[in-house]
């Protein structure tokens, strides 16, 4: 890397060609993290991420990485896990403060804006480091469903489908094929499982666990985990498709 040895990557200040190396390095922390996707459908939003099971001793299905904020917001993060937990905590504080001041749930666009601004602050001072996470903010409010992705430099865009982490390229290719304006939440759960399975590396097939939550009409506007039954159904569907494709390839050969 051309930056190494110049010193411009040792603090949060611009290099002569206008780059903030620390902020860029933060993206590297996410690039190899577990895959996380968000799908905004007609009637709600789905958050899904895939966790590599690093030890058989870990208790399954309890070490969650998608957090609830207020009742109507879900935040999935991928990258540095503790950074993600801090983002969720911060979001909860913002939501509580909004409620204390205005007595109503915080709008999706506001929570995304507040988080974006917060993350951006950590690219302004040499005494801190930026967040090594991509945060997916899923909300369902009076304006309908929203999906935002907050990046390590503080930028946040609204998406119909978003992906980050190791399998993001494959996932984005798959997401582009979806018809978001007519997609329903229940179908999107299946699609999310399918897309996560499609990102699997065949050679290095470690054991995985899928964590999936949703918020929208199907959940009365409350952010909750996708019910076990539906998730298993979706995973079975995803597995069938993944196996089917393998057979197709085998037959072609």
């Amino acid at each position: 890397m051309s930056s190494i040895g110049t010193g411009y990557d040792l603090g949060l200040f611009f290099s002569p060609d206008g780059r903030l190396f620390q902020a860029e390095y933060a993206y590297k922390a996410v690039e190899n993290a577990s895959t996380c996707i968000g799908i905004k459908c007609e009637d709600g939003v789905i958050l899904a991420l895939e966790k590599v099971v690093t030890s058989k001793l870990l208790k399954p299905r309890v070490n969650n990485r998608i957090g609830s904020v207020d009742r109507h917001i879900g935040i999935a993060t991928t990258g540095f896990i503790p950074d993600g937990q801090h983002i969720v905590k911060r979001a909860r504080d913002e939501a509580t403060s909004w409620r204390d001041n205005y007595g109503s749930p915080i709008p999706g666009t506001v929570i995304a804006d507040r988080l974006g601004n917060y993350v951006q602050l950590f690219t302004c001072y040499s005494s801190v480091r930026p967040f090594g996470v991509m945060s997916f903010v899923a909300t369902y409010d009076s304006e309908g469903p929203h999906l935002y992705m907050v990046e390590p430099n503080g930028v946040y865009w609204g998406y119909n489908g978003a992906a980050a982490g190791k399998g993001r390229q494959v996932a984005r290719n798959e997401l582009e094929k979806l018809n978001f304006s007519s997609l329903k939440m229940k179908d999107a759960v299946k699609e999310a499982a399918r897309i996560l399975y499609a990102t699997h590396d065949e050679e290095n097939n470690k054991e995985h666990e899928i964590e999936m939550t949703w918020v929208g009409v199907e959940t009365n506007g409350i952010h909750t985990p996708v019910p076990d039954e539906l998730l298993q159904e979706a995973e079975a569907y995803a597995r069938r498709i993944a196996d089917g494709e393998e057979e197709d390839i085998a037959m072609q050969e």
Partner: peptide
């Protein structure tokens, strides 16, 4: 209001 806050906070633990 206090009770609603408590309910939300407890619900967030999931």
């Amino acid at each position: 209001r206090l009770l609603e806050k408590l309910e939300i906070k407890e619900g967030n633990y999931g």
